[in-house]
Nucleic acid binder design. Structure first.
Ligand code: FES
Ligand code: FES
Lengths: 160, 160
DNA sequence: CGAGTAACGGACCAATTCGGTCCGATTTGG
DNA sequence: CCAAATCGGACCGAATTGGTCCGTTACTCG
């Protein structure tokens, strides 16, 4: 039901690791991989993804590496794992509007009565992930964070 | 990030379809598959799973088939999709206690700082799915249902 | 009692996805 | 210029998933 892939987990580990060091510390992918105990080449991809998502800042050349650009309070959970989760929809036929353009729609989309409920539920959970900050997540898994997010969703009246 | 597999979707469709008919209606797998427009053999597996989960009741032989045993208000979202989701944990190394017995633990479970937050977050979302009833889900994706579940989680003080 | 009907369950297969690797190109600092 | 580092695409094997097939069991109706 719920699953984040390895890349996302490595991303979370990376952010947490960097956040523990003095602010602005620069670490090379190689060193980071060693300290985290994860395959170096794969982590490299993760770091590139995090840079593209503007979570990290990269500097090339000798003495270069990656550093955090935001504090944990400014980082959202979804910012960190988002770049590595391509199927944000719960089912293949309920794609997000962005991806729906390319792929063909499910042929029984109209008759299928669960499509809309699933889509609504997905939107709700997505908004919770977008509300949850990384520091909330890292201390306690976001119990408090998700609660307020759910309240927000209720206010937004996603329920029919 | 979030994904239910096809079987789960078929399960949801089945429950909804049966719930629309007069209570206690019995439908054969063959007929059900035709009405829903899904592969018959695969739906058969789904129905068997739902029966094992005590969501449906099966009767063999001529004139047999499946019928709902609970009302939508008594059915929880997780009851319906649970039998088809084997990885209830967000990451492979954060297995649920039940499954953790068989599979080997992640070797860097101790040093990994995101294991516990992820586990807590997973538990929270799991409890939300367990709170959400099928009728809440089917009308609106569970905005109201999830809200109360989140409050419950906050009371249970999953947050450190 | 027997034929037909439908659930049951395990084996099996193809396609996709995923975790991981390799390697060449590019930028940058010393 | 050279070494260190990011960058990014191609590639691969393994695991998962969606889907099929077939034989067995159990039940109902005639
Ligand atoms: S939308 Fe395709 S089957 Fe539900
Ligand atoms: S627990 Fe295994 S790496 Fe997080």
């Amino acid at each position: 039901m719920l699953k984040v892939n390895r890349k996302s987990e490595y991303a979370l580990m990376t952010v947490q690791h960097l956040a523990r060091l003095p602010a602005g510390t620069v670490l090379a992918a190689q060193q980071l991989a060693e300290e985290l105990g994860v395959p170096e080449d794969l982590l490299a991809k993760v770091l590139q993804g995090l840079k593209r998502a503007e979570v990290l800042q990269a500097s090339k050349g000798a003495g270069g590496g990656y550093r955090l650009v935001r504090t944990l309070a400014e980082l959202r959970f979804i910012d960190v794992i988002g770049p590595f989760e391509d199927h944000m929809a719960m089912v293949s036929c309920c794609e997000t509007p962005a991806r729906a353009a390319g792929s063909a729609m499910c042929e029984r989309a109209e008759s299928c009565g669960v499509r809309q409920p699933i889509s609504a539920l997905n939107q709700l959970l997505h908004s919770q992930m977008a509300q949850l900050t990384m520091d909330q997540f890292l201390k306690g898994g976001g119990g408090a964070g998700l609660r307020s997010a759910a309240e927000l969703a209720a206010e937004a009246s996603l329920v029919g």
